[in-house]
Amino acid sequence: MARSDAPLDSPAKHPPAVVLGVVTTDLLNTSEPLPLEAAQQALKLLPGVAADSHRHPVEQAVSPDLFYGVDCRLATIRGAQPRAIGTVRARAVLTAGHVLQGSARVDVVLDASTRRMPWSYYAACTGTVEAINKADPADLVSGFLKTPNGSGLLDLGGIGTQVMALLDDIPQVDGRADMRTVASRLRWAVLVREGVDLDAEVVAGSDGAFQVRMTAPSELVPRIVAFCEILALHQWLLAALKNAFDRAGRSPKPMDELDPALSYLGHVWNPTAHLPTEIAWLWEALEHDAQLTWEWESTVTRVRDKLSLLTRKAIEGTLHKEFL
């Protein structure tokens, strides 16, 4: 029951000051990629709500949004950490039946109320947290990007991982991925300013993963989410393939490293496939500076060359044995 003096107007009236997000990416733990139909089935994480999907040019299925209640602190650099309460929006994205992402984000509303409201108040506005202490939006953006985790802090990465873990126990997933991979985390934060042009900065964080800091109007947020998921996917692909190549150089069975890497990932690279047009320039700018596609192509070539050399050696070895 709400108290009479509680402001019961919908929290939706307060526009977000900041939007925060984390995309976690890793290989789905299964030996063969899921066909699109199986992926759609697997990502039907809410009863009665179908997964979104497209078949071309790269198969992709996107789960419905799930919501997770939080009551936590928000990281800052300068000021005190405000307490924030509400729900986080999260979804799973499965690309090419094999690369799984947990993407979590939250709108942060400031100055709406100064005390904890009953839960129904927060539940009415999904995907939003309200800070009940004062905070500077720019400070929240910096704090979020520079503080990977800490006890009591908003843990979007953890929520993304939780969504991904929902796929571990389903029957289509056999738990036998043949490849060692490292999960990656991309953190992004938007300072919301209505009526301005999108301004963005992509930097590599201390762990090598990209971080995206933007100033943008709120209507662009869904496209920003898509961009960050695409960026996270491709940075992970590149890291995973390079890791496989590195491991092949020191493994007693190099074929066992290269073979799955190429068959799992070799065909997945296509950054502009689902890139929203409004934000395509950002990818182009990134390509200009970091040349990710060039790096991907050259790494694929290295992997293929190494595989051919190993195959030739193996054939020669067999022939040699037969002649002896």
Binding site: N149, G150, S151, G158, T161
Partner: peptide
């Protein structure tokens, strides 16, 4: 001091 294996097993740290 923060989020080691002990906290993880206790469920206090998500990773």
């Amino acid at each position: 001091p923060d989020g080691g294996l002990h906290s993880y097993i206790l469920g206090e740290a998500t990773e």
